Computed example of a mutant assay.
Amino acid sequence: MKRSQFLPRVVIALLLLFTLVPFITLLSAALQPASEAPRGLTWPSNPQWGNFVEAYQTADMTPLLVSSVFIVVGVVPISLVIAALAGYGLASLSIPGARWLLLVFIAGLTIPFESLITPLFFQMKSLGVLNTRFAVILALIGIFMPFGVFWMRSHFVSIPSEVSEAAKIDGAGPWQAFWRVHLPLARPAVASLGILLFLWTWNQFILALVLIEDPSMRTVAGALGAFQSQYETDVVLLAAVSVLIMTPTIIVFLLFQRQFSRALLEGAVKG
């Protein structure tokens, strides 16, 4: 094997090991007997798989899972539609002030998330949706828009202008060109953006804690803080709950990893 091929593989193997070790450590901690304190990366001789059932029941995760799914369904599709339309408009249509609008979205990427929590609280209160899931949905859609629009615009800009010209010659208007030509070509970008939005929404807990007072209406990640404050000495159950929260995100990424990798590779080649 050539040295130029060996070094990249070693780096990839080290990165994979660096990624898997924390998860394996967390899993091993979740399988320890409840009476024992986990000690690093030590696989238990008698794994206690029942810890996951106990953690699920103790945290009462069923309403939290329903709430998380409701919020994800409210955030991801709407964000994808708005981001795709706005990205296409900024990239392909002659919109007055398009460059200034793009700068506004780029500026939105630089705003620290923590600085938005207090304004969002009062904004949702003025809209009358505080202490409801719609407060989290509206807030996350707004927070995700700068990145989503920038992501989709980057894809549409990379499409050759000949594609749009061919659509115009065939008599397609802006909407038909978007729906029949550009959007099918943007499926990898839309799919990868959808994965990112799902991961960010599912793992969101700060907004759920601030904007929703009822613990049963928060996200599963938001419940982890309350669970930890109540059972801060029970490390085993905390690890079990953490694994349960992480599992859906891992499944989604494994199912759609090809689309995600394809979008990144296409961006790298076109860039």
Rank of each mutant, 00 (worst) to 15 (best):
2 K>L: 02
3 R>M: 08
4 S>P: 06
4 S>D: 12
4 S>V: 11
5 Q>C: 10
6 F>E: 06
7 L>S: 03
9 R>S: 10
9 R>N: 10
9 R>M: 14
10 V>E: 09
10 V>N: 05
11 V>P: 10
11 V>E: 06
12 I>M: 13
13 A>S: 09
14 L>R: 10
14 L>G: 08
14 L>H: 05
15 L>V: 15
16 L>Q: 12
19 T>Q: 13
20 L>Q: 04
20 L>C: 02
21 V>Q: 14
22 P>Y: 04
22 P>D: 04
23 F>C: 12
24 I>M: 08
24 I>W: 07
26 L>M: 13
31 L>C: 06
31 L>F: 00
31 L>H: 01
31 L>R: 02
32 Q>L: 03
33 P>W: 00
33 P>K: 00
33 P>R: 04
34 A>L: 12
34 A>F: 02
35 S>N: 14
37 A>V: 05
37 A>E: 13
38 P>Y: 04
39 R>F: 10
42 T>Q: 13
42 T>A: 05
44 P>K: 03
45 S>Q: 13
47 P>C: 08
47 P>E: 04
49 W>S: 03
50 G>A: 13
51 N>L: 00
52 F>S: 06
52 F>D: 04
53 V>L: 11
53 V>R: 03
53 V>K: 06
54 E>D: 03
55 A>D: 00
56 Y>T: 02
57 Q>K: 14
57 Q>H: 07
57 Q>N: 09
58 T>M: 10
58 T>A: 06
59 A>K: 02
59 A>S: 09
61 M>Q: 00
61 M>A: 10
